[in-house]
């Protein structure tokens, strides 16, 4: 389980998280939605200790992430796959080497590494791409390699940062299907950050909306679809709105 407790984070004068509290249960996929720049990716990076909170804490399986010693943090990270917004593949390495890099870190024998590379590429339907370089791949293929790199570690959690952003609808659907398959076939807990509602409804078991640095609402797909919160409703229906013009009670931060 991942737990955010009253997490605050600011970059200079810009407050990004202002008391975010959220429980992410194991075995499900939780989707964090919110406007661009609302701090979704910043929240995700707290989970693997890429960013430390100014106040509050993030726990993963009962361990407070920013209190962990470097070795313990490495161990924690070994159980968490991270799929970056633009894949973040190492462009000087082949697809196969990108996947092998993480596996070698954990001291697996070469046969096991080769098997896992093959299996993870097969899972994302890129069996033929092992010897290719990231520059030779399309955006969608790069994202699939990013997912393969995360899956190969056999993690307990996979964090997806805007997995369908910038992709055409068909490729987005392929990525959504991969995320669903990762949970179904591998049993991993997923945390997906997105503002793509079609993707959120497809892959999510629960949806949490981050707004003005806090979780505005969290619930099942049905609860979110039927919400009467004006901010959440306007967001999921894609209607422009001005938060300053909401009635005071509804504009609660």
């Amino acid at each position: 389980m991942i737990r955010f407790t009253d997490v605050h984070k600011a970059f200079g004068p810009k407050v990004v998280l202002a008391g975010m509290t959220l429980d992410i249960p194991a075995g499900q996929t939780t989707v964090i939605i919110g406007f661009s720049g609302s701090g979704k990716s910043v929240a995700l990076k707290h989970i693997v200790g890429l960013i430390e909170p100014d106040a509050g804490q993030v726990e993963v399986d009962g361990q407070v992430v920013h209190d962990l010693a470097p070795d313990a943090l490495s161990l924690l990270r070994a159980g968490i796959g991270y799929v970056f917004q633009f894949a973040a593949l190492f462009d000087s390495m082949t697809v196969g080497d990108n996947i092998r890099l993480g596996l070698r870190r954990h001291g697996l024998d070469p046969d096991e590494v080769a098997t896992r590379v093959r299996e993870s590429l097969h899972l994302v339907d890129l069996d033929e791409a092992e010897a290719r370089y990231p520059a030779e791949l399309s955006g969608g293929m790069r994202k699939r390699v990013g997912i393969a790199r995360a899956i190969a570690l056999r993690p307990r959690y996979i964090l997806y940062d805007e997995p369908t952003t910038g992709l055409d609808p068909v490729t987005s659907a392929v990525i959504d299907e991969l995320m669903v398959r990762a949970r179904r076939e591998l049993g991993v807990t997923g945390v997906v950050v997105t503002h793509d509602m079609r993707s959120a409804y497809t892959v999510g078991d629960r949806i949490a909306m981050l707004y003005q640095g806090r979780i505005r609402q969290v619930g099942t797909i049905e609860e979110i679809r039927q919400t009467d919160d004006p901010v959440v409703r306007n967001f999921i229906e894609g209607r422009p709105f001005d938060p300053d013009r909401l009635p005071a009670a509804e504009a609660r931060a």
Partner: peptide, 15 residues
């Protein structure tokens, strides 16, 4: 590598 999050990716792979 830093601005394309490759350095972050290294860290998440426990390097």
């Amino acid at each position: 590598m830093r601005v394309t999050e490759q350095v972050d990716a290294l860290e998440t792979l426990a390097y």
